[in-house]
Simulated scan of single mutants.
Amino acid sequence: MKRFHVHISVPALDEAVHFYSGLFAAEPTVHKPDYAKWMLDDPRVNFAISQRGAAPGLNHLGVQVESDAELHEMRQRLDGMAAGYVAEPGTACCYARSDKYWTNDPVGIAWEMDHTLGTIPMFNDAADDHACCVPSSGNTAAMATTTPTTPAANACCDKTATGKASSGCC
């Protein structure tokens, strides 16, 4: 069964955790100094927030699946839409190891399709603690040329034109 995923970047994590815990009548299932996640069943959603330097607001949307078969189905949907995407097998992000596909919708909002394989003790495997997880937004053209076996140059933790890591994160 699939689960809708929403990730919001926040300027003050403790304040946001307090607000969303009250709104959902539940404490986060994952709570780190820079990240929190609620795995809710009513509504069925993976709702995450982080304080990692990205601009406050919507970071990305997604569909979390429970099996390789469901992730394959999501990739087939992207293929059927002729939507470009970035494949990230075995990536480390948001305190989890996952297989993922990323695409952008027509207005540039990043969408993540992922199958979580397990947890990890740190936000990601990158040396830069603020490294991103979301491919650079607005690079739909680069995604359009990406195949599942050829990750795009703008994939997770890509450097911007200034040489700095992109600011988005899972």
Rank of each mutant, 00 (worst) to 15 (best):
K2W: 12
F4D: 03
H5T: 06
H7P: 11
A12N: 15
V17F: 07
H18Q: 09
G22M: 11
G22V: 07
L23R: 08
A25D: 15
A26L: 00
E27M: 12
E27A: 15
E27T: 05
H31S: 10
D34T: 09
D34H: 03
K37I: 13
W38I: 07
D41E: 11
V45P: 05
F47S: 00
A48H: 07
A48Q: 08
A48N: 07
I49A: 09
I49V: 10
I49W: 06
A54I: 04
A55C: 01
A55I: 14
L58V: 03
N59K: 06
L61E: 05
V63Y: 12
V63M: 15
V65P: 14
R75Q: 11
A83V: 00
A83P: 00
G84W: 04
G84K: 03
G84I: 07
Y85S: 01
A87S: 15
E88V: 00
G90V: 10
G90F: 08
C94N: 07
Y95P: 01
A96P: 00
R97I: 02
T103M: 13
T103Y: 05
N104F: 00
V107Y: 13
G108W: 01
G108N: 06
I109H: 04
A110V: 00
W111D: 11
W111C: 11
M113V: 09
M113N: 03
H115V: 04
H115L: 08
I120N: 04
P121S: 01
P121D: 00
P121Q: 00
N124L: 11
N124K: 14
A127T: 01
D129Y: 11
D129N: 04
C132E: 12
C132A: 15
V134N: 08
V134E: 07
S137G: 10
G138L: 05
A141F: 01
A142H: 06
M143W: 00
A144W: 10
T147I: 13
T149G: 08
T150K: 10
T150W: 09
P151G: 06
P151C: 03
A152E: 08
A155V: 06
A155P: 06
C156P: 08
T160R: 12
A161I: 09
T162R: 13
G163L: 05
K164A: 15
A165K: 04
S166L: 15
S167K: 04
G168F: 15
C169L: 08
C169A: 12
